[in-house]
């Protein structure tokens, strides 16, 4: 399974937050100091991870932001951002705004596991409801127009990879409403 790489994730985040189609350090630095202040923290983290912090600092004229950046850089030292994020490591002196970005990366990175756990919850509930209400798998896959083989594998054997999260949710809700 291909895993989410930090600098690619945060670059995508920056492009979305700036509502543009491509990354531009100069434009993003200006935006951080004018109309999109919330881009400031992810921008520094991207610059840190890709070793372009000096270039970024040269573009900062806002003294408050510059001071904040220097404090964050001091706190980070030479630490690896992915390791901090995925290990939920405490970094003394790193403000909550940066920690939130790192937490968001960890949540995004763990998304495959989260989805799997969510499917499992839905499967367990669905099995309980299916047995309580005496609903056959055929009724379910006909009503929801699902693939019979995959639906059977999911319901009978808990094969979580056979259905999407949306389908697992739809099956559960169908059984609740039955």
């Amino acid at each position: 399974m291909r895993r989410l790489v930090f600098n690619r994730w945060i670059k995508r985040l920056l492009v979305e937050l700036a509502d543009t189609s491509s990354f531009n350090l100069r434009k993003f630095a200006a935006a951080a100091q004018k109309d999109i202040p919330r881009i400031a923290e992810p921008l520094l983290l991207y610059a840190y991870d890709t070793q372009i912090t000096e270039k970024l600092l040269d573009l900062i004229w806002d003294k408050e932001l510059l001071a904040s950046y220097k404090t964050a850089l001091q706190a980070l030292g030479k630490k690896n951002l992915s390791e901090i994020a995925l290990g939920s490591h405490y970094v003394p002196g790193l403000s909550r705004e940066y920690i939130k970005i790192l937490n968001s990366y960890r949540v995004a990175y763990q998304r495959p596991e989260t989805v799997r756990e969510s499917k499992k919850m839905r499967w367990e509930r669905s099995r309980t409801l299916q047995l309580e209400k005496g609903v056959s798998a055929a009724e379910i896959y006909h009503a929801l127009k699902l693939n019979p083989g995959n639906t059977n594998a999911y319901l009978k054997h808990g094969s979580l990879d056979k259905v999407s999260l949306e389908t697992a949710t739809a099956i559960m809700k169908f059984l609740y409403a039955y």
């Binding site: 985040l13 979305e16 969510s118 919850m121 509930r125 949710t169 559960m172 609740y176």
Partner: peptide, 24 residues
Amino acid sequence: TDFQKDGILQRLMQLDDDALALFG
């Protein structure tokens, strides 16, 4: 996007679905 209104509501909906699965 994940970070604007629809994304927030989607996350709340998935939380709601998890709670429905766990607690009925």
